[in-house]
């Protein structure tokens, strides 16, 4: 009896042959994508964050190690890499890795503007672009609502001039959600980035439904609360029913929960490990949990 695609993927994961797939030159199945509501462009449901992990300064060994992570990310079908001028040397290191891996043209370059005076925004953006070594950013976001009115004007002007594809805004702080909601209601946005994971679900009440209603793409940051959620479940067994959602690790369990929310476009876990970046990308594959399974996942997490 011939195997179905799903059975084949399951078999590959089960036997560990998956790790050999790139070495054998066999194409890995591409991660699932979701359309960006404002354009319809398909975006892989798992991206790559760079907070802390890519801030390795001038350490040549760590830079090359980051490049390996990035190569594995692109090989596995990833596209969105997210950074910020706030992340120390991360932008420089991303630029180094993009050049070294030859992926400057493939990346969905996502960065932020983070400076108190709106007048300084364009200069900071130009500097960020230079550090990345890209012709233009795909998405620029106002970081943590800093001087957001002035920066949104700058970003919209760039978009109108064709120097930017998408405009967004971010927050990692629950206390800023009311303000973020107001901005989402009153301003034109392509993306919003916020914290969403199985333990931080406040955004399910208002912000995610609002994003869905207004056609704003959602990037979920802090999917593992840095490492805290992974560490919390370390040593604990996945539930027996985890294979029903195709999760073979806690990281995949946590990511599948996030990206299966109808309003979430993608999650951006950060990592310094090649095996983890592959594992993260593998979360964006069928099967994903449905609404009933998502409730079961939340209940299980509380139980654990």
């Amino acid at each position: 009896m011939p195997l179905t695609r799903r059975e084949l993927i399951g078999l590959i994961a089960l036997t560990g042959v998956g790790a050999l797939v790139p070495a054998l030159g066999v194409a890995r199945p591409k991660p699932l994508t979701k359309p960006i509501p404002s354009s319809g462009e398909a975006l892989p449901m798992v991206g790559l964050g760079s907070w802390i992990t890519f801030n390795v300064g001038n350490d040549p060994v760590a830079r090359d190690s980051s490049a390996q992570v990035m190569r594995a990310f692109f090989d596995a079908g990833g596209r969105m890499i997210d950074s910020s001028p706030m992340y120390g040397s991360a932008q420089d290191v991303i630029g180094y890795c993009l050049k070294k891996t030859g992926n400057t043209a493939n990346v969905f370059a996502t960065d932020k503007v983070w400076i108190a005076d709106g007048k300084d925004g364009p200069k900071q953006i130009a500097q960020s672009r230079e550090r990345w070594g890209v012709d233009r950013f795909d998405l620029l976001q106002v970081h943590n609502l800093v001087a957001w009115e002035a920066h949104l004007n700058t970003l919209h002007a760039m978009k109108n001039e064709g120097k930017l594809l998408y405009v967004g805004i971010t927050t990692s702080h629950g206390r800023r959600h009311e303000e973020l909601e107001r901005i989402m209601r009153e301003h034109e946005l392509d993306f919003v980035q916020l914290t969403y994971n199985v333990a931080d679900r406040e955004v399910e009440d208002r912000l995610l439904p609002l994003a869905h209603e207004k056609g704003i793409a959602v990037i979920a940051n802090r999917p593992f609360r840095r490492k805290a959620l992974i560490q919390r479940f370390e040593g604990k067994k996945l539930p027996a029913w985890a294979d029903e959602i195709g999760a073979t690790s806690w990281a995949q369990f946590l990511l599948k929960f996030i990206i299966s929310h109808p309003a979430v476009t993608c999650a951006i876990p950060a990592t310094t490990r090649v095996d983890h970046v592959r594992e993260n990308l593998d979360s964006a594959r069928e099967p994903l949990p449905d609404a009933k399974m998502r409730r079961r996942m939340v209940a299980y997490i509380h139980e654990v």
Partner: peptide
């Protein structure tokens, strides 16, 4: 902002 590995590696390189 940086990992412990990066922080302590800085002293090695220094």
């Amino acid at each position: 902002m940086f990992s412990p590995e990066t922080y302590y590696r800085l002293f090695e390189l220094y």
